[in-house]
Write a protein that binds this DNA or RNA. Sequence first.
DNA 1: GCAAAAGTGTTGAGATTACACCCATGC
DNA 2: GCATGGGTGTAATCTCAACACTTTTGC
Lengths: 228, 228
Amino acid sequence: MGRANEGQRSAKQIHPRVAVDAVLFTLTQGALRTLLVKIKKGGFAGRWAFPGGLVQLDESLDAAAQRELYEKTGVQDLYLEQLYTFGSATRDPSARTVSVAYFALIPPHAQTPHLGEKYADIAWFPVHDLPELAYDHNAIAEYALQRLQSKLGYANIVYSLLPQEFTVAELQRVYEIILDRQLDRRNFRRKIISSGLLKPLLKTRRGAHRPAQLYTFSQRQPMQLDVL
Amino acid sequence: MGRANEGQRSAKQIHPRVAVDAVLFTLTQGALRTLLVKIKKGGFAGRWAFPGGLVQLDESLDAAAQRELYEKTGVQDLYLEQLYTFGSATRDPSARTVSVAYFALIPPHAQTPHLGEKYADIAWFPVHDLPELAYDHNAIAEYALQRLQSKLGYANIVYSLLPQEFTVAELQRVYEIILDRQLDRRNFRRKIISSGLLKPLLKTRRGAHRPAQLYTFSQRQPMQLDVL
DNA sequence: GCAAAAGTGTTGAGATTACACCCATGC
DNA sequence: GCATGGGTGTAATCTCAACACTTTTGC
C-alpha cells in the first residue's frame, strides 16, 4: 500500500468518489425481486438504478452498506455481503466514482420501501425482467444474481428470506425460484433434513389439505456447508 | 447509486483515497511466496506490506492493478483478479483509504522484482511465514490465500505459475504446495488428464531417470470447470 | 543391476439421480 | 369421496478415495 509516503502528492490529488450500491433481493408473489430507485437529476434522470450513496469519511464500507439498507427498507441485521467493486473510469460520466456493490436478502414482510426525497420513485422489480439501468448497474445485477445462485449451494443464506416458521415445501419453492429450475421433492427433503439446518417445531401448517410439518432454522447465522 | 444528484454536496466533500493493493503469488524453491515491499516513511516505516498505490482519476481499478503488477515485476498479461475491497475507516491511520485488493499468479522465471525509490526494500516471502504486516495486510494475505486455494479446485488458473512445458508430476507438485497437502498420484493424473486441460507434446523430459511425458496447457485463458 | 521417478487399474463406499405410491385433511 | 398437497423408499449410476506393482532410464 504505502500511501503514507505519498502524502505530499495525494494532498494535491483529487480522489475518486467512493459509493456503495446495494442489491436487495426479496421474494414476493412467486418471483425474486430487487429494489430499484428512479433517479431524479443528472444525465441518468428518469432511469432506474440500485440504491446507493457515497461513503462517509468516518464510516466503513460495511457500515455504509448497512446504512443504505436501513434507510431504504428499515430492516437491520440481515444477511449482507460485499459483492464486487466496480471501477471503470467512465462508468459515471458526471464524476469519477468507484462503486462497492453489496447484496442482501430481505424477508418478504416489512416491505414498505422508503422513498426519500433523493429519488423520484422506488419499487421492486423481478430480476428476470429488469429495465435498462443507469450506470453499469445491469452488470452489477447480473453479477449479484450469479453470486446468489451459486452461494445457495454451499451456504445457508436463505434464512434471511423466510419467515420464522415454514414448511419444507415453502423452503423448496424459495430454492426453485432463485435457481430458476425444478428440484426433486424427495431428494430435496432428504438433503435439507439431513443437513441439520432445520429444527422441526411442534406445530403444523393447516391449509386446504394435509397439514405440513413446520420448521425453523437452527442457525440464523451465515455458515458454510453443503446445502444442495 | 444516484450520485449525479449529489453534485452540490460532493463538490465540497473530501473523498476517501482509493488504493489498489496487489497480492502477487509465485512458486519458487518449493514454496508459495508473495511479494512484499518495505515501507520507507510514515507510521508504518520499516514494516512490510503488499505493493500498491493510489488509483489515478482516469484509470480503471483493473488498469491500476495491472500497472502496479507491471511496475513491480515487469510482467504483463497474467492471471489477475479482484479479491475484495477493504474499507474500515481506521485501517490507515494517516488518511482514510479504501483499498481494492487484487491477486495475481506470477511464473517463477522473470523474477527481478523492481525496487523503485518508493520503498526501502522488496522481497519474496513464503506465505506460511509472513511477518507482521502494515495496515490490515495480514487479513488481506489470509483472504488471498483462501481464495487461491479454493479457486484451484474449480478453475484452471495455475497456467500462470508454470512454464510452457511441464510434466504431470510438476503440475501435481504445484497443486500440493498451494493446497499444502499431498494428493494421490494416480487420482491426480486421471482427473487432470480427463479434464482436457492438458495437451501432450511430442517430447519428453529426460532427467536422472525414466523420461516423463511433457504437456502444455490447451487453454491459457481463465475458465471455469471441475479441476479437482 | 540398482536406484529413482513414470506410468497404469481395480475395488468399495458414499453420494446423486430418477422415479411412484400412500396419507391426511378440507370441502 | 375426491381433490390437493404432504410424506416416504429403493435401485442404478456415478464419483471419490484408497491402494501396489511394473516400466524405463541414468549411473
